[in-house]
Design a protein around this nucleic acid. Structure first.
Lengths: 191, 191
DNA sequence: GCATCAAACGGACCGTCGGTCCGGATAACG
DNA sequence: CGTTATCCGGACCGACGGTCCGTTTGATGC
């Protein structure tokens, strides 16, 4: 019954500590303030531990990002409409961008750091590919004549940490999301 | 007549050598293959010289990018329509994206390296601001009801080195540009 | 409890990077 | 040719991401 490979208790504890330390450093300063030495020190853990768990700087940030979007992933896959399957493409698109935009607005610094770390491999990231597939499907559904693949990339290209920060004034924290939604609607509109 | 500050001959020679070395290294390998030590070595120049001329890695890549787009800048500012002033917004937009797309397609590696180097300051780059102003003006002209500022950012967000590489198959080298133009036309279309 | 051992730990260590600094070289000019 | 402002070069620095391996520790069977 029990899986042959159960994770040791200290491993679990350390992984959590590392993730917490990472988010704390991200909140304290810019993305380049998060060096792996600092993360390890703040987590009370050796540097090697960080790398064994997450493989690289990119992997660490990816893990944090994945944690932040796990619920959305589930909801899109098998949740209730309009986020989950069943609703018309336009409604699903709006609902999806509403949540994804919210996550992005709340994690702009993390996004920046992740972009920087992934560098050239941004499009190979599993999260990116998942969102891209979802968006492309919705665009293809709502507007079969368009290049859904490209439009999906175009929408995701907006989720840039620095752009979000620049477009998110304190008095209107959801401005970015609204703009993205408006643009997506424009792109979805049939010729 | 002669300007009070004429540049010393060796300074001019070295600046050119550094730029050539940079582009050669960019062509040889990925953007992270271009370290400033390597550039200096290949240019037959000391490292300090590179920094005195260009200030930083970002400055070096920016200079190269600026060199590549100088003609376009001039044409947009004061050239003949449809690139220059005088033509309707839609035609200017298409003409502009045609040329800018061509430059991007031919310099995807440079673009990647520049993004990486500028990191958080992408939106403070003079080139970015210039193109953004131009695009925002055209959007505002053709579709006064839209958020021209955001749309301009959205279009520029497409000019990502990795995305361009991924969207530019050898047998269709202008696919990226066409996609960008199509999207821009969709965004310009009035409600 | 205790012995055993795979798993996990930690931090010294490495190569490289972007960036600085200053003594020495050199181009421009009269 | 002498003077001087400018420019040059490369040793140097701190920090970074990533590796390695001797040591510790949690799980497991007895």
């Amino acid at each position: 019954m029990a899986p042959p490979h159960t994770e040791r208790a200290d491993a679990v504890r350390n992984r959590r500590a590392v993730l917490r330390a990472t988010e704390q450093l991200l909140n304290e300063g810019g993305g380049d303030h998060v060096s792996l030495d600092r993360v390890a020190a703040l987590a009370g853990v050796g540097k090697g531990t960080v790398f064994r768990r997450f493989g690289s700087r990119a992997g660490l940030l990816q893990a944090l990002l994945e944690e932040r979007s796990r619920d959305l992933r589930e909801a899109v896959r098998s949740g209730a409409p309009p986020l989950g399957p069943g609703a018309p493409a336009q409604e699903r698109l709006l609902a999806f961008l509403d949540v994804l935009g919210g996550i992005a607005e709340g994690n702009a610094t993390l996004l920046s750091a992740h972009e920087q770390a992934c560098a050239e491999d941004k499009y190979g990231d599993p999260s990116y590919q998942l969102w891209h597939r979802h968006l492309a499907g919705l665009f293809a559904d709502g507007r079969p004549d368009a290049d859904a693949d490209f439009l999906a990339h175009a929408v995701l290209a907006l989720f840039d940490g620095a752009l979000i920060r620049r477009m998110t004034p304190p008095e209107d924290p959801r401005r970015f999301t609204r703009s993205v939604q408006r643009m997506a609607m424009t792109l979805l509109r049939p010729l």
